[in-house]
Amino acid sequence: MENQNQNKEVNKLGGMIFVGFMFVGIASGMYFGHVAVGTLAGMGVGFIASAMYRSEKNK
C-alpha cells in the first residue's frame, strides 16, 4: 500500500514538472515571438525531465 502511495506522489510531481516546463516554453516562445516553437520545446524538455525524475524515484 505504501508503495502505491509513493508511486502516486512520484507520478503527480512528474506531471507537475512537465507542466512547469511547458509553461516556461510558452512564455519564452511569446517573448521571442514563436509560441509554437517554444511550446514544443518546453514539452520536449518537460517529457525528458519528467521521465528522468520518475526513473530516479522508482529505483
Rank of each mutant, 00 (worst) to 15 (best):
M1K: 06
N3D: 09
Q4S: 06
Q4V: 12
Q4L: 15
N5D: 09
N5P: 01
N5C: 02
N5E: 15
Q6R: 15
K8V: 07
K8M: 13
K8E: 10
E9H: 09
E9Q: 14
V10S: 00
V10E: 08
V10Q: 08
V10W: 08
N11I: 11
N11R: 14
K12P: 02
K12W: 10
K12F: 13
K12C: 05
L13M: 15
L13V: 12
L13T: 12
G14N: 01
G14K: 05
G14I: 00
G14Y: 03
G15M: 02
G15D: 01
G15S: 07
G15V: 00
G15E: 00
M16I: 14
I17N: 02
F18A: 12
F18H: 04
F18V: 06
V19A: 12
V19I: 15
G20P: 07
G20D: 02
G20F: 08
F21W: 11
F21S: 08
M22P: 05
M22W: 12
F23R: 03
F23M: 14
V24F: 10
V24R: 02
G25H: 03
G25K: 04
I26A: 13
I26C: 00
I26M: 12
I26F: 15
A27I: 15
S28N: 12
G29S: 05
G29D: 04
G29P: 02
G29Q: 05
G29R: 06
M30A: 09
M30H: 08
M30P: 02
Y31C: 03
F32H: 10
F32P: 00
F32R: 07
G33L: 04
G33F: 04
G33Y: 06
G33V: 02
V35P: 07
A36K: 08
V37S: 06
G38Q: 06
G38Y: 05
G38T: 05
T39N: 07
L40C: 11
L40T: 10
A41K: 04
A41H: 00
G42H: 04
G42I: 04
G42W: 02
M43W: 08
M43D: 00
G44T: 12
V45S: 05
V45N: 00
V45Y: 07
V45W: 04
G46M: 03
F47T: 12
I48Q: 04
A49P: 01
A49N: 04
S50D: 05
A51F: 11
A51V: 06
M52D: 08
M52E: 12
M52G: 03
Y53P: 04
S55Y: 15
S55G: 00
E56C: 08
K57A: 14
K57T: 03
K57L: 08
K59S: 10
K59D: 09
K59R: 14
